[in-house]
């Protein structure tokens, strides 16, 4: 069985992934019609490229259907339960930087830390007849982070886009979202809590722990990883 490397099927993540592979001597041959979802590596046998959506990559790695994959750490940690036992975060690829953060309205001058938010959340029901609402698409990261801060009493409002607009729209009180520069957060009159950085994410080359690792695949993987690592550090 060939070693399968999954890379994002579109956008900047795809372009940067192809660049990094090419720079390491693994030039990806795109399918001829340019719409297919499989590729190969020029001059290397035994390696296949699978183009998948960024969140599918995390899932396929976890299920062992692909051997290696490039995707955001945020997606892997959000989508995969017990992630440390199922994936190895082999290489940080120095692109796709984004932080998953907790942000509250700028007008909440009294809330600067998670401890402040804990205080506010605790009093919410008694004062406003409902729990504090958090808009996010990061259900799992939010629950883990809040639980680590001892905050249990809040409700998540599922957000499928434009999360940063939820407080102004009145559909949530605070948000957990991804940001790279913080400008969208500021533009929406929100602020990031001082200790509200849940994850500093970037694109990672990940290794599936449950894929079929025969001697040949293991060798190809080691070569590929060291070629990319060498290239990143130079």
């Amino acid at each position: 069985m060939n070693l399968i490397v999954a890379i994002p099927s579109k956008g900047r993540l795809k372009d940067r992934s192809l660049e990094i592979l090419a720079a390491a001597g693994y030039k990806v041959e795109l399918p001829e019609d340019n719409r297919g979802y499989q590729g190969s590596i020029n001059g290397k046998s035994g390696v296949e490229i699978a183009f998948l959506s960024a969140s599918e990559i995390a899932r396929e790695l976890a299920n062992g259907n692909v051997h290696l994959g490039i995707t955001g750490e945020d997606l892997a940690r959000e989508k995969i339960a017990d992630v440390e036992n199922r994936l190895g975060f082999a290489l940080q690829l120095e692109f796709g930087h984004a932080d998953v953060i907790v942000a509250v309205p700028d007008a909440w001058v009294d809330v600067e830390t998670m401890a402040d938010l804990d205080d506010v959340a605790a009093g919410y029901r008694a004062r406003y007849g409902r729990r504090l609402r958090i808009a996010t698409k990061y259900w799992n990261l939010t629950q883990e982070f809040f639980s680590d801060h001892g905050i249990a009493v809040y409700r998540i409002v599922e957000s499928l886009g434009a999360t940063e607009g939820a407080p102004a729209a009145g559909s949530a009180d605070v948000i957990v979202d991804i940001t790279s520069t913080g400008s969208t957060i500021r533009a929406n009159h929100l602020k990031i809590l001082k200790d509200g950085i849940i994850l500093r994410s970037q694109a990672n080359l990940m290794v599936s722990k449950s894929a079929a690792w025969d001697a040949e695949n293991t060798r190809i993987k080691s070569d590929l990883l060291s070629a990319i690592a060498k290239n990143l550090s130079s």
Partner: peptide, 27 residues
């Protein structure tokens, strides 16, 4: 007042959740 202006700038709803006065009191 200071908080209320911030809320108005952000177009935040005044009728749900924390009011300017609640925030000020806690501050």
């Amino acid at each position: 007042d200071w908080v209320a202006i911030k809320m108005a700038n952000a177009n935040m709803p005044f009728d749900t959740g924390r009011s300017a006065e609640d925030i000020a009191e806690r501050m």
